[in-house]
């Protein structure tokens, strides 16, 4: 009788908790669940999948700049987006695949004379959520 009561209580508790856990799985997962962003920088060049000349202001003479992002604890193959904005105007959006268990990727743009001004790169996850915003300027 005591065991039956314990089993009933356990079933009730499970019935109460189970939907919450299921809802957590079906709802939007936190980025940490999918991956962990370990590094996000703006740089002039990428060599051997490592960023060179990290900065927040780039001369137009650099010719090309990149947004480097590194991830760990990637649960499964997914993707991120690098959205490049100049003066709040979307200039470029690049979808980059990342794979388990750790991954590094980058996107680049070619600089032109008209590109001077304040910029930002927004890093979005596959669930359309902003993970990080990098702000920099392109100068003379």
């Amino acid at each position: 009788m005591r065991n039956r009561r314990t089993i009933c209580v356990a079933i009730l508790v499970w019935l109460w908790v189970a939907p919450i856990g299921h809802a957590a799985d079906s709802g939007p997962a936190s980025p940490e669940k999918l991956f962990r962003l370990t590094r996000a920088v703006m740089c002039e060049t990428i060599e051997g999948y490592e960023p060179n000349f990290e900065a927040v202001a780039f001369s137009i003479n650099a010719g090309r700049i990149s947004c480097y992002t590194a991830f760990e604890e990637v649960m499964a193959t997914t993707f991120v987006s690098h959205k490049w904005y100049r003066h709040d105007e979307l200039v470029s959006a690049k979808r980059l695949t990342i794979k388990s268990p750790k991954w590094a990727t980058y996107s680049s743009i070619q600089l032109r004379e008209a590109d001077k001004g304040p910029w930002r790169v927004e890093i979005w996850d596959a669930r359309n959520r902003i993970i990080k915003v990098l702000r920099f300027s392109v100068t003379d």
């Binding site: 927040v56 202001a57 304040p118 702000r135 100068t139 003379d140």
Partner: peptide, 11 residues
């Protein structure tokens, strides 16, 4: 609104 520094010129 976020605040962003507007750099110009050359170091």
């Amino acid at each position: 609104l976020p605040v962003q520094v507007n750099w110009v010129g050359t170091l």
